[in-house]
Computed example of a mutant assay.
Amino acid sequence: MSEKVLLTGISGWIAKHTAIELLNSGFEVLGTVRNETLIEQTKDTISKYAPIDKLSFIKLDLVKDDGWNDAAKGCKYIFHIASPFPIKVSNNRESLLPPAVDGTLRVLNAGINAGVDQIVKTSSIVAMFRKPNRTNPYTFGEQDWTDENWVEGVNDYFLSKTKAERVAWELMESKGLKNKLTTICPGGVFGDALDKKGGTSIEYVRQFMAGKFPGAPKFAVLISDVKDIAKAHVACIGNDKVGGRRLIVGKEVKKLVELSQLMAEAMPAYAKKLPKKELPNFMVKLISYLDSSAKMMIPDLGILMQTDPSYAEELLGFKFKAAKDCMAENAKSVVRLGLV
């Protein structure tokens, strides 16, 4: 009998890659969707990369109690991947908290009630590195937390990821179950788009390759390959070393202009459209008044982040993909799918 994994938000980009990794490793997967219309498209995409005889779906909503306890019954593991990541920034910092925070508590409580062996939650380095008065370069690691009270620098998405991870740890510690939880903390997620649904990171790549940016903002981020993130989730199963740990998954920190160069090398036909210079910070701030997606970067403009994810490679037992390979695969998949 195969071991069953409840995987939340299976129609999402990271979750689809994770489902593929699980199915190819012989696990049974029960994927949650908020909207039943997403099931066929998700199943079709996954079927191109993995057998789907052990794949099933259930309609559940992170903002409703209904069905979570029943879904977790009979599951040995839970991968809580679902979380909102809009490309636009809301003026309401708390707009994403109901699905992110309350949803996390619903999923984890269902897992506790069902007596699952392990819970792996997808968090992000955005729950780690945003705080005022940082040095430049700024180094962060597993013990660091984003300052939720920094209103100017912590937007709706950053706040939702930080609060959701904090409540997860608080709940598991209060139950004496901290070692049953692991969080996976990627940076900017890039790699194979799989299908046209994609994610926010894919949209940034698409816009770069379509010539939408005259220059690249002076923004740097840890580059995380989506397949590494999926592999990291699965590598946690039965791995005693990762209990109670926050695992930073990614290889190298790169500036956006460097990512542009990597995409140009991989896809020379698009080199002319890709930005070759960096935009002055004041221009990015001006753009952010017209396009709220630029607001996400403003607190980090000109700051070079540093982190050492090698501890996570050691605990998970594999090496993360270099930014060059990750961005090449991303650019090629965007073109292959006709997104540019």
Rank of each mutant, 00 (worst) to 15 (best):
G31H: 06
S288P: 08
L315E: 14
A164K: 10
I223Q: 00
E142S: 10
T122N: 12
I81L: 11
L262G: 00
A50L: 03
E148C: 12
F318I: 04
A127P: 09
N281E: 15
L259V: 03
K212L: 08
R93K: 14
G103D: 04
L7F: 08
I287A: 15
C75Y: 12
E94I: 06
R130T: 13
K16S: 15
G153V: 02
A323N: 00
S56G: 10
L316F: 13
K231P: 02
E36S: 15
V253H: 05
I52T: 15
N149S: 15
K324W: 04
K276R: 07
L286I: 14
D117N: 11
L222K: 02
E203A: 06
T139S: 13
T200W: 01
S11L: 04
D225Q: 01
G111Y: 01
F219E: 08
R206L: 02
R336M: 04
D325I: 00
E329S: 09
T42H: 11
S25M: 03
S2R: 14
M263V: 00
G176Y: 10
Q207L: 06
I58R: 11
L304Y: 14
L262I: 00
A266L: 01
Y49R: 09
I298P: 02
N281L: 08
E148F: 09
L315I: 11
N133T: 05
K48A: 13
S2E: 13
D228G: 04
N133K: 13
I229R: 03
S201Y: 03
Q118S: 08
